[in-house]
Amino acid sequence: MTESAIVEATGLGKRYRRTWALRDCSLSIPTGRVVALVGPNGAGKTTFLHLAVGLLDATLGSVSIKGATAFLAQDKPLYTGFTIAEMLKFGKRLNPGWDDEFALKRIDSLQLPLKHKVGKLSGGQRAQVALTLALAKRPDLLVLDEPLANLDPLARHEVMRGLMEAVAETGMTVLLSSHVVSDLENTCDWLIVLNGGRVQVSGDIDELVAGHRILTGPAEEADSVSRRVPIVEDTRSGRQATLFARTEPVPLSPQWSERPVSLEQMVLAYLRRPDSASLPRPTLATA
């Protein structure tokens, strides 16, 4: 199955004075995916999102988006003195493709009174109003910078549920950044890991998780194993070696055991080893 790309970045780089916030970033995001952009603070996530939606100009390379885009910034900018009704009217005036019926229905289903001042809402309610404004633009691509930051677990779940329902209804593509991987399990299906301004991982989450294994066995045989399969992380403790490998099931001597990895284990293994990468390269031979 070939998927058409909605976001395409080629050699994208951004330099602030002498520091590169993002460099040599080439990736494409297939249409209809829910994409998790993951990385530690300062990895370049916000820079990448701002470049993608056109809030920043690239120093090098380019990024293009096919279709209408809505962007929700990290601080969820709303006018605190406005009521919800005024906020919706504001959105309607500014956006030609605005779906007022959808916006009113969503606010109603959230049981938020239109007369309430935005400044009086809880963090979770404010996030839901901001999300409603973004969704009512009926975008092909919704870009969210840390949509779950500063929300309690219940509000995080509700925001994600609202987002997933919108995806089910419209089939739009979502690109969201987060540094909490557990929030993304079961909600995102494409993973991009940014680390130190570089893309480390980009791919389908199920395929990535199925394509990695933790191999445990005697340390004296570890070098011969790591010559056969690509190793992301190599941990030795005394006579035992634990290898985080990018591989399908491999035949190993009986002293070795292998176990599957979770999304979170995989992300952490890559983040601890910024020099490892798992990127789609047509020439990469998987032995």
């Binding site: 209809g32 779940h157 994600m160 549920r161 997933m164 329902e165 089910a168 079961n186 199920d206």
Partner: peptide, 18 residues
């Protein structure tokens, strides 16, 4: 439907379709 499952479990609809 995918939407019914999503409303129940808050998971990605693509997962249901898959």
């Amino acid at each position: 439907t995918a939407k019914e499952v999503v409303a129940e479990l808050a998971i990605n609809p693509n997962t249901v379709l898959k």
